Amino acid sequence: MLLILSVIMTCLVALGLVKLIDKFLPGGARPIVSILLWAATFFLAYLIYESVMKPIRFDEAKNERYKVAVQTLLDLKKAQLGYKKVNGEYADSFDKLVTFIDNGTFDIITRRDTTIIDHKKNRAFNLTVNEKGEGGFFKDTVIINKIGTVSVKDSLFKGTERYRNLSSVKFKDLEVPVDLRTGFVFRNETKLPVFEATIDKNALLVGLDEELLAQENKVEDINEINGDKITLGSLVDVTLSGNWPKRYGKND
């Protein structure tokens, strides 16, 4: 709407100038001046059009690349959670993750809530009970049974080989590395594993308008990706959230 109004206003101004020329300039000079004015009008309209369309084209290209980058990080998150489930910590390299997905297995287990005789409590109260525990204390427990295994690949990435490219974001001819770091933090004297993965915005948006890219790196908006990196996880907090809004992908 702003673009249409700007072009209309430009054309109206040009039309007004042409009318003034027809009224005050000598007949021989009118055609040349009119052509120059119309050329200047069209050039000005083009500049207005470009000033409006440039950020629109930037946002379209940016959003395409961000969606691919976020999908890569979500795949990485899925792989790291699977690795931690089996190994108790996060993988500190992409090679470990690929090997784990190719060769690892998850246990298939069943859980059943039940009630059993609380022998310890019965002894503490000097209670003698029969085989059924009648006259004594009982406690709730969960019985866990392993009934089989399933491959990690089939469980997490069945039908896709995307996990082999977790180390970089590939968009057309562009390839941008994913920086992966792992560590531990302590919460109430408990050692907890953490990891952080980042993608540099400048590398991901290379080739786009540099002025708009500089603005993108400084953006502060809950509906945008703040800062100069796309980030998943943290090395100082126990979190697996990313710094992107949900329109680019799940973030929970």
Rank of each mutant, 00 (worst) to 15 (best):
L81H: 08
G82K: 02
K85I: 01
V86C: 15
V86E: 15
N87A: 02
G88R: 08
E89W: 04
Y90A: 05
Y90H: 07
Y90S: 05
A91G: 11
D92A: 09
D92T: 00
D92R: 08
L97D: 04
V98S: 06
T99R: 12
N103L: 11
N103A: 11
F106Y: 11
F106K: 10
F106N: 05
D107S: 13
D107L: 14
I108R: 04
I109S: 03
T110G: 11
R111Q: 12
T114C: 11
T114R: 14
T115H: 12
I116N: 07
I116G: 12
I116H: 12
I117N: 12
H119K: 14
K121E: 14
R123F: 13
R123S: 07
R123E: 13
A124W: 09
L127M: 09
L127T: 13
K132M: 12
E134C: 03
F137S: 01
F138R: 10
F138H: 10
K139Y: 04
D140S: 13
D140C: 01
V142A: 07
I143C: 01
N145M: 07
N145A: 10
N145K: 15
N145T: 13
K146P: 01
K146E: 05
I147L: 06
I147P: 01
G148P: 01
T149E: 14
T149P: 00
K153I: 06
D154V: 04
L156S: 07
L156E: 02
F157L: 09
